[in-house]
Write a protein that binds this DNA or RNA. Sequence first.
DNA 1: GCCGTTTTCGGCCCGACTGTTTTCAGTCG
Length: 576
Amino acid sequence: MKNKELAEKLNRVAEYLEMGDVDYKPFAYRRAASSILELEESVEEIYDKEGRKGLEEISGVGKNIADKLEEYILTGEIEHLKTLREKFPVDLKNMLRVEGLGPKSVKKLYENLGVENLEDLKIAASEGRVAEVEGLGEKTEKNILEAIEFLKKDEGKWALGEVLPVAREIYKRLKSLKEVKRISFAGSLRRKKELVGDVDLLVSASKTEKIMKSFTSFPNVEKVLGEGETKSSIRLREGFDADLRIVGEKSFGSALQYFTGSKNHNIKIRKIAKSKGLKLNEYGLFDKKKKIAGRTEKEVYSKLGLTLIPPELREDRGEVEKAQKGEDFSDLCKLEDLKGDLHIHTDWTGGANSLKEMVSAARERGYAWVGIADHTEFLRIENGLSEKELSKQRKEIEKLNSKFEAQNSDFYVMQGCEANILRDGSLDISDKGLKKLDYVIAGMHSGFKMGRIEMTERLIKAMRHPEVDIISHPTGRLIKKRDSLNLDMEKIFKVAEEENVFLEINSSPARLDLKDADIKKCVERGIKLAINSDSHHLNQLENVEFGVGQARRGWAKSTDIINTLSKEDFLSLINN
DNA sequence: GCCGTTTTCGGCCCGACTGTTTTCAGTCG
């Protein structure tokens, strides 16, 4: 768990150094940070086992950064970072969350206006002082104000991808206790919402003391907010809270139903109970004083004349009515329905792992096929591939396929690409180059500030391109960071229908793009979707879990998702 | 600050876009 913290510290050093106009060192610190994030082992473990030498063997870590890692492991501080902070006493972490604001601008704002944090910045900008700083101007000031507004919108909310790994650690810790009979996440986390307020855990047990002790002594606890017999709360070092509730075995189902929500879903469910002369609360479903259900959620729903509604659907978007009619939701898409992943990067472009490594990791996941979709020319930073390089990659892919064939394996690797949609809607690679590929993904990676009409036309032009099959991360949003692009989604959906273009559900926890409401619209119109990991590292293949959660929140069935097809069916769909 | 089919200093993914300027700095990917 410490790796993430350490990487963050190193990145922060890089940012402060950039503020101080230092060259190259920031790059070194960033590189070290990113290789630490990719380690399988924790830096602490490496240090325990192999000492300093082990630290220096981490790629990108030399003598100096090893010093800092050692210092942090031993003291929990990095003196160098403290010194840098004294020079520029600004809340860099939060200031840099403002889209469009980098270390250099933060420095200007601090030196000219004494801006140290977001509040200062907001005041300065709304008083018109930001525009007067040399190098900044009125538009920058306006953009800053808008970006701060956007940040404020999701204040106190955390991205599912940030919360879930920590939540799982707590879950595992509690589950290992013999006193714990049943355990589940509840709340928005269980509903797989893209933003969650906190971690809700529900446990059934008769003896609670040991469980509560284990919970409040979790290593990442910053503060115990409350500790009781049936309910405790902790604040984690990551910044969010976790709540644990313990109930009796006979109430686990009703409590789970109650604490999973959503609020609007539960209001509707309780109304149904009331209309039947029953009462529903976290302790059970009651007929007068007699408890008639509570042990399982299924029992509760069933006694109310409803089928069991999957947590991801519990938003009062029509699921209750469907459940009343007997719909069993079993065809909703599931992780195990995915037969492949169409959006995988390799070290041919910006990925961390080789083609071979990515392919074998995908194979180990139990996929039947996989699609490599590296960047094309325009994205120089990602070493986007030229037509010629794509042909070379193709040869390597064909080699892998022959190998699989020789092993009598049906596993198959397809070659696609993620082409860039330029400002005018054209692609950064020739039709001739695209024709050689099995399929084509296109996506927007630049030019985010365009008017609605222009932006919509741009995307539509790309969708109408005869070679384009899939649009990656269609709205371009970054969760808690950047709002969706200015697109007329109705028009986009219409063209997707006309052109048989598939829209991506990008599983990267930073994106989750399309969002649930858009997915639901696609499903209703019969537009097919692709759940892709957009992996740049083999650890990221498992991110499809987030995409599946998102798809389920959008009511997508397995038949709506093209990754559930066999390779043959997928290719014939693409070629028609 | 790290790295080296460059042994010990010189190079370090780079182009588009935006908003500031009026030729370029900062940010993003």
